[in-house]
Amino acid sequence: MNAPFTPSLSGGFAHPAHDAARAFRAAMQALARPGRIEPITGAAPPAPLSPAAGTLALVLLDQTTPVWLAPSHDTGDLRAWLTFHTAAPFTTPQAAMFVIGSWVAISPVSRFSIGTPDYPDRAATLIVEMPDLRAEGPRLTGPGIRDSARLSLPETAAFQANHALYPLGFDTFLTAGDRIAGLPRSTHVEEN
């Protein structure tokens, strides 16, 4: 960190206001329309974080949003990059507003904040890194979906359990490369 140029200083938005606005539009459309896969670009985070997850982090994280990096993503380079670009404090799984990692690494997901009956918005947002995203697999229905949609989820049981808590529950973004999909707690998930 003493060198004048370190990788953590690069890879941010070239034009913060415009890039963040475009990326937020993609993330919002993804979460508002579960099953839709949107391109999202702007950031170049250090490996293993995908450009999509890195971009979403720059759009949403700041010093008021504690984040937990799962073991799959808890590297010194990534910590330094997130700290420089967002100033988000690192915390435990239970206290995290945002969770970043692979599905296996963040499991069990039942430990994340689901909000309270009075404040269901105080729930965690998971940013789950995926090998790829396809419009196939479990069947999704609910708000944001006209009839039904399909999305290659890492598993169904955990999302069904989460939906059963509605209006409580965590909300999930799935990221792969420069693409993003959303799965809010309101979505009903069925195995095929």
Binding site: A20, L31, V59, P120, D121
Partner: peptide
């Protein structure tokens, strides 16, 4: 941008729980 991040987080939670006032 700090204000917009706060607003954007609220908008996403509002979309996740339709009708709940964030």
């Amino acid at each position: 941008e700090q204000t917009k991040r706060m607003l954007r987080r609220a908008i996403l939670k509002a979309l996740a729980v339709p009708g709940y006032q964030v």
